[in-house]
């Protein structure tokens, strides 16, 4: 995390990739406990990653990372469960025993962010899509969209912030 904060992109990627399964396991456990299908917890994982990224400066490097991560995941999990319809409270304990328990295959897909992407401006949406679904780097995206690399990064940062705000607003 410290390397990530210092701008080491490779280390930062390794960190986020290492965190993802941990976040996923916790999010699924949370969904299971609330009587929801664990496979739908991926949106929480993605929202938590987005929050971890945008709020990474709120981690005090003198303190352990675990509690900070856990607090963010819990925050996002509570938001997600709160915006679910009341059907979430129907007890389906019996069902759970029948349902297959194994994890769904990778790559794991979320739907919430795709839906919220539609609310962004066309330019920002193109940039986010190029960097996510198409897997381009900022430089490649800049060439494709005929923008400077810096402009792509600025637009990306704004887009991520807007997405995070939109996820928060839904929980209200």
């Amino acid at each position: 995390m410290q390397a990530g904060l210092a701008g080491d992109a490779a280390a930062y990627r390794r960190l986020l990739e290492a965190l993802t399964p941990v976040l996923r396991a916790r999010a699924r456990r949370g969904f299971q406990r609330a009587g929801l299908p664990p496979a739908e917890a991926e949106d929480v994982v993605q929202e938590a990653l987005l929050a971890i990224h945008l709020k990474r400066h709120s981690w005090d490097s003198a303190r352990p990372l675990g509690p900070w991560l856990a607090a963010i995941l819990r925050h996002k999990l509570v938001d997600a469960l709160r915006r679910r319809p009341a059907a979430a409270h129907v007890p389906i304990d019996d069902l759970l025993e029948i349902l297959p328990a194994e994890a769904p295959p990778e790559p794991v897909r979320g739907h919430e962010l795709d839906r919220l992407l539609a609310q962004l401006g066309a330019r920002q949406r193109d940039i986010v899509q190029a960097l996510t679904v198409e897997g381009l780097s900022a430089r490649e995206a800049a060439q494709r969209l005929r923008m400077s690399e810096g402009a792509v990064r600025v637009a990306l940062h704004r887009a991520l912030k807007t997405l995070a705000l939109l996820t928060g607003r839904q929980a209200a």
Partner: peptide
């Protein structure tokens, strides 16, 4: 989008706060 795709975008956003 899937989660590794999201991470790809997050890594590109290097504005270090």
């Amino acid at each position: 989008m899937n989660t590794t795709e999201l991470i790809n975008a997050l890594v590109q956003d290097q504005a270090a706060p």
